[in-house]
């Protein structure tokens, strides 16, 4: 095999060994084990060894499988796209801000318009965070202000100016009849009218928000369902450091 064609390594080059664990929604038994083996074959593995099969609930069986992967990949053709968000941990982000930006990042957040739901902005900003990921409040290098729900655009922008925020986070959890589009457009237009759009990073978030949509509406980024606070923090740190570099 050419050296740039690679596959997983167990203890011999190109043996393709992979360990898998998964659960199938079937009752434990010989038939279940056979199903696991055939499923692994469908995943394109060979020499499949179902090392463990165990009942973990009525009608659920857990498997640990070792098998040999067949496909190879041409490593010379792998390109790393410049990922929009560098996935960094809580500690890495704080360190990066400390070392590269050398000052705190100031963030103001709110749910704007008639949206009374703070679940999105709270998940990102509260100490506790979301899905095992600490909220922005907990970052030693980020100063935050969470204004809550139903905040008028003007109050939000006034506050952002007042505390000299770097970024404005806007949450739109419930969107009826495209009200999120209206609300975000209102915010962006207000900033443009005041000629301060470039002064802030504007980030939209919510289950119905996509990055594409948010950017189209004039925001810097949009984050959808399942976004973790560290992804937002990484984005802010990265953008602000780059912005500073340009100056």
């Amino acid at each position: 095999m050419k050296p740039h064609l690679i596959k997983p390594y167990g203890d011999t080059l190109n043996d393709g060994i992979v360990q898998l664990s998964f659960t199938l929604p079937v009752e434990y038994g010989e038939k279940a084990k056979k199903a696991a083996k055939e499923y692994a074959a469908k995943l394109n593995f060979k020499n499949i060894n179902v090392a463990l099969a165990s009942k973990i609930a009525d009608n659920f069986t857990y498997f640990v499988v070792f098998a040999e992967a067949k496909p190879v990949i041409d490593y010379s053709k792998i390109k790393t796209d410049t990922v929009k968000i560098k996935e960094m941990s809580f500690y890495e982000i704080n360190n990066l801000i400390k070392k590269k930006l050398k000052r705190h990042i100031v963030v103001v957040g709110a749910a704007i318009g008639s949206d009374a739901h703070t679940v999105g902005i709270d998940a990102i900003m509260n100490m506790k965070g979301y899905n095992q990921d600490y909220g922005l409040e907990r970052y030693s290098q980020i100063k935050t202000l969470n204004m809550g729900a139903q905040v008028p655009v003007k109050s939000l922008v006034d506050k952002a100016l007042d505390i000299e925020a770097d970024a404005i986070l806007v949450s739109q959890a419930v969107t009826k009849r495209d009200s999120h589009i209206y609300n975000l457009r209102e915010l962006v237009n207000y900033l443009k009218k005041k000629k301060i759009r470039k002064r802030f990073l504007v980030v939209a978030g919510g289950p119905g928000i996509t990055n594409e949509m948010a950017v189209k509406l004039g925001c810097d980024a949009g984050f959808g369902r399942g976004t973790r606070p560290s992804q937002v923090a990484s984005f802010l740190a990265d953008k602000l450091i780059k912005k500073r570099g340009k100056k």
Partner: peptide
């Protein structure tokens, strides 16, 4: 813990 809320097999 550092990845996701527990899957059935994680708990097991």
């Amino acid at each position: 813990e550092a990845i996701h809320t527990p899957l059935m097999q994680d708990r097991y």
